[in-house]
Simulated scan of single mutants.
Amino acid sequence: MRALRDTWLIFQHEAGWMVRNPALVALTLAQPIAYLILFAPFLKVAMANQGVETYAEAYQVYVPGLFVAMGLFGGLFSGYGLLSSLRAGVIDRCRVTPVSRTGLLLGRALTHVALIEVQAIVITIAALPFGLRVNPGHLLLAYLLLAMVVLLSTSVSYDIALLVRNDNSLGVLINTVGQPVSLLAGVLIPLTLAPLWVQDVALWNPFAWATDGLRALFAGNITDPAVWQGTLIAFTACAVSVAWSAHLFNREVS
């Protein structure tokens, strides 16, 4: 219970900072909106031989992938915030308080989850004029799956940040890891268009399973095995990564 209380307190503090900086939050939406408007229409032509005949169907394929891209990169770059707090002494000041180390970590991570969820809601609304239609219940499940994606990528970023403790090294590793992982998740171009060997490699990528699950939900196929498979794999990977982050955090910041 103490860890939950501390997580909530840290989350409130970090979320309050974001609320006081709405312009910064709005700027993070610029790239996803640009991709939504400029890139998604290409899929109508690219996937015409796979049954995509309208822009509405193209957005049903593209928006879930965009969600995963936002969750992946939004989470990976969260490590910079942790490094900044470590350098500024914020974490050290928290250490002298009774707040739990796990709560200190999870509270910060859940702030990024909340931010990406808000962005996802905005993207969903922005896609409606283009013909996107999705069942509200399926959409809520998609947001839940997205939350696990963000928490997974955020904890991975914290792992890297705690190990390298350097902004430049963190940036290099994020770009080295993030780009191939996103391509192998099919976030921009569905993996059904990829060669068979690429699809086989993608089976080891939890973000690819999450992308398939999200696309099934947006297509209205809640009984599709991709939904429970993507949820189970994302949850398992998320649990392992968060546990390892908590271990590193307790060791490095104790």
Rank of each mutant, 00 (worst) to 15 (best):
M1L: 12
A3I: 12
R5M: 14
D6R: 03
H13C: 14
A15D: 02
G16T: 05
G16W: 06
N21M: 06
A26L: 13
Q31N: 11
A34C: 10
Y35N: 00
Y35D: 00
L36F: 11
I37K: 10
L38E: 01
F39N: 03
F39G: 06
F42H: 06
F42N: 07
K44C: 04
A46D: 04
M47L: 15
A48W: 04
N49T: 14
Y55M: 12
A56P: 08
Q60G: 13
P64Q: 03
G65L: 03
G65I: 00
A69D: 07
G71A: 01
G74A: 03
L83S: 07
S84Y: 13
A88E: 09
C94M: 13
R95N: 12
V96G: 08
V96I: 13
G103K: 03
L105E: 01
R108F: 08
T111N: 10
H112N: 13
E117V: 15
V118Y: 14
V118L: 14
Q119Y: 15
T124H: 09
I125K: 02
A126K: 00
A126N: 07
L128I: 13
P129R: 11
N135Q: 07
P136E: 05
H138R: 06
L145Q: 08
L145N: 04
A147F: 11
V156M: 02
D159K: 07
R165A: 08
R165L: 15
N166M: 02
S169E: 10
L170M: 07
G171Y: 08
I174H: 11
N175F: 11
T176K: 01
Q179L: 14
S182P: 06
L184T: 01
I189C: 05
L191G: 07
L191K: 01
W197V: 11
D200C: 07
A202S: 13
L203D: 05
N205W: 09
W209T: 14
A210R: 05
T211N: 00
D212E: 15
G213A: 05
A219R: 10
Q229F: 03
Q229R: 12
L232N: 02
I233G: 08
I233W: 09
I233S: 04
F235M: 11
T236V: 13
C238M: 15
C238Q: 14
A239K: 06
V242Y: 01
A243L: 13
W244L: 12
A246L: 04
H247Q: 06
H247R: 01
N250K: 15
S254F: 14
